[in-house]
């Protein structure tokens, strides 16, 4: 697990890369091709997902593609670290943006984040319907469940 632990802690998404960066970047993209090229590019920044964690209990249901999500709570800081993987590129990109918004936060603080509002700022929902099996809702829902369990 130590390799995975490092992956958790060293994940730049949500640390050196912040949601503010993404919001600013998005403002410069003016058609669907650029926006999706950007999202696909974000997906490539997801850290490697440990192979042995692709297990049923880490599977996120409700997506058309296969999505896995694992978490780790750092004892010292109480922060919640997340890793997500998918076999669909656009889902990977969306997962990366979710991690940028929610990774490495304290569970209580995470729960106060209005993710819908964030996505609206990104103008993401206008272009990507959250209901179309891309797993946006399912991923965010699972993260919130994990945070709620930790905060309890």
């Amino acid at each position: 697990m130590t390799a995975a632990l490092e992956t958790f802690i060293n994940n730049p998404l949500g640390k050196s890369v912040t949601i503010k960066d993404v919001i600013e970047d998005f403002e410069f993209l003016d058609d669907w091709e650029e926006r999706y090229a950007y999202i696909i590019d974000m997906g490539k920044q997801l850290p490697d997902f440990p192979d042995d964690e692709r297990r049923e209990e880490n599977y996120v249901h409700g997506c058309q593609s296969q999505v896995w999500l694992i978490h780790h709570v750092d004892d010292a800081t109480g922060k919640l670290y997340l890793l997500i993987d998918s076999d669909a590129m656009i889902v990977r990109g969306l997962a990366a943006i979710i991690l940028i918004a929610l990774n490495g936060r304290e569970p209580r603080e995470l729960l106060t984040t209005d993710i819908d509002e964030l996505f609206e700022q990104l103008d993401l929902f206008r272009h990507i319907s959250p209901t179309r099996g891309n797993g946006l809702r399912a991923m965010v829902g699972k993260i919130r469940d994990i945070a709620a369990a930790q905060a309890a």
Binding site: A88, I90, I128
Partner: peptide, 14 residues
């Protein structure tokens, strides 16, 4: 190299 859901989403954009 492409997942069907990626294809569907990007065709919809067009």
């Amino acid at each position: 190299g492409l997942h069907p859901s990626d294809i569907g989403t990007l065709l919809d954009q067009q």
